[in-house]
Design a protein around this nucleic acid. Structure first.
Lengths: 346, 346
DNA sequence: CTGTTAGCGCTTTCAT
DNA sequence: ATGAAAGCGCTAACAG
């Protein structure tokens, strides 16, 4: 393709560059014959409009910046996929920035200052690139208010919270409520929960859903059945051991993520408790590995694709200056597999 | 930030726009005092050069296009991470295109025509965006020669092959040889292999490594020990069953991916064969789930990050018109976990 | 050391 | 229905 521009096309088609521009953009009526001639030349010479020039003129790049805290963390690729899915339809492009946060600060999200500069730099470069807007993808749902300033550029946050901008999450409360409902429907009454770190928003939301189910289904509210984990498999293992030693152990465990559910499996295997016959387990996140475990565990699937899709939709609206409709939070979906069964009749 | 450009800066700093440009780019000596004044104004007004204008002028965008066949397939995020890691250092940016191939055509890679247009479109848009080069990330190593034309723009392929362009893979042969060596060192002699689809390049390469180890270590070459799988867990399961029914069953199995290794685990569990005590297993790919299985399986880790990093390095060289050094294929790394032990003494 | 100015490739107003 | 020409915000001769 090289260096052919609108000028070359105009010359070869015997029209002015303006006309070429008109047929290119459909901005004005062009005599069909002329139009076809131009189109043919464009085709022949394999001409592609120079987007840098267009952007300069139009003050619009049709490109958004996506800042991912870490593309290698499980939730991010699906969200990007959703963004992409929608961006394709809107003819938008994606400038991707990867903060590599997981490698750089691991899980120390509280040390905001250690990554604020990464984020601010990313925004700065994106702004320089004249993106029409920005989507920020978190790797852990938390409040990110005030992380950086976009100087008026539209931004939407996905998989995290913020007070002054649009942010997309999913319905954590409904998710754990649904998981509980499923267990209850199987006949379970003594259901234990292993939470994530309680300083995390999803942990608290999921606990709310758990609690709501306890109340609505009139289940025994037994503090011994509520264990605080830390998202890691080891905590699932340890707390399951404790649960199994109870005088009246639970017949089912709701683990707030699939990783801790692995710990439940390990503990059960070690003590010789059969899953799901003697103990049901349900996880959270629908991580890839959850279906490769033995037994394959039932889990709550996160609407990641939809979060990405909606984030892009909302951003497009923001860019056009239109109001964002108040969408309900997308729901999680129960994936039924082999780790849940009715409790053993006594 | 809005509409402040170099002109506003120049005015406020009492210099010409040229001078502003000079301090911005360090293209020419500027009197320190002037320089500082300009810098201060830039800072104050939070000015960011308009990249569209720069690109138009410089005929260089410092942006590369990355075409990912599918960002949700396991190998892709790590490769993107590697590209990013390197791109950051070179001050390059990434325009990401996601072909969503896994959703659109699943695994029917042979029907090239069904996705050629997706790929060609992606290239076309990237070219229009004036990217300096392109990296194409495959989701399955195969020959992609002639998939599309980049009209002279530099391109490098990652995780796939091509005959006329630079492409980055990893050393499959060494990987399976190393896996075998590890098994041999533990004392295994009767080692079975469960291959992937034999129309796939990695399958054949991995088989070569397996065969080389058989020869070099003088292991029995027993056709009964070589099973052709299809990458899926079910085939791992079925073939393991066959292997276990042999008069003289293997003491170790090399599965050509972790998914089939799951099948091995399931079969062993079903027949009551203890892993690793009675049967050792080693997988391939170091998929996330491999460390959550019970037992955690040993596996070969793919140098995905490095492939991405090298792809970016090579592309940068190509862009500068410099020759690509002939790097050796990056190696896979054995991840030792709990699925390998010395064979039972008879 | 600093300023003037001619484009980069396009869109769009204003003429015709 | 078409064209001429004025920029978009910047870089880089060229001139002083």
């Amino acid at each position: 393709m090289a260096d052919i521009g609108i000028k070359e096309i105009a010359a070869k088609a015997n029209v002015s560059i303006a006309t070429v521009s008109y047929v290119l953009n459909g901005t004005r009526n062009v005599r069909p014959k002329t139009r076809e001639r131009v189109l043919r030349v464009i085709e022949e010479m394999n001409y592609k409009p120079n987007n840098a020039a267009q952007s300069l003129k139009r003050k619009r790049t049709n490109t958004i910046g996506v800042i991912a805290e870490d593309v290698t963390v499980f939730n991010v690729p699906e969200i990007i996929d959703g963004i992409n899915d929608c961006a394709d339809k809107l003819d938008m492009h994606i400038l991707l920035t990867n903060l590599r946060l997981d490698k750089r600060i691991s899980r120390n999200f509280d040390q905001v200052d250690s990554y604020r500069s990464f984020a601010a730099n990313a925004v700065s470069e994106l702004l320089s690139k004249q993106v029409d807007g920005i989507i920020y993808i978190g790797i852990h749902p938390r409040d990110l208010t005030g992380l950086f300033d976009t100087y008026g550029k539209p931004i939407v946050y996905a998989y995290c919270y913020t007070q002054n901008d649009v942010s997309l999450q999913y319905n954590d409360e409904q998710a754990s409520y649904d998981a509980m409902a499923h267990l209850v429907k199987q006949g379970h009454k003594r259901i234990a929960v292993i939470t994530g770190m309680m300083d995390s928003i999803p942990s608290r939301l999921r606990f709310n859903g758990f609690y709501k189910a306890i109340m609505e289904y009139n289940l025994p509210f037994d503090p011994q059945l509520m264990k605080m984990g830390n998202w890691e498999a080891e905590s699932g293992y340890r707390l399951t051991m404790e649960l199994l030693e109870l005088n009246e152990p639970p017949t089912a465990i709701l683990a707030m993520n699939d990783v801790m559910a692995v710990g439940v499996l390990r503990a059960a295997a070690e003590v010789g408790v059969l899953i799901p016959r003697e103990l049901s387990v349900i996880g959270f996140d629908n991580r890839e590995f959850s279906e490769y475990l033995i037994p394959r565990i039932s889990t709550m699937d996160l609407p990641l694709h939809e979060i990405g899709y909606q984030a892009m939709e909302s951003l497009a609206l923001l860019i056009k200056g239109e109001p964002i409709p108040n969408n309900p939070l997308p729901n999680c979906k129960l994936i039924e597999r082999d780790s849940v069964a009715p409790p053993l009749r006594l």
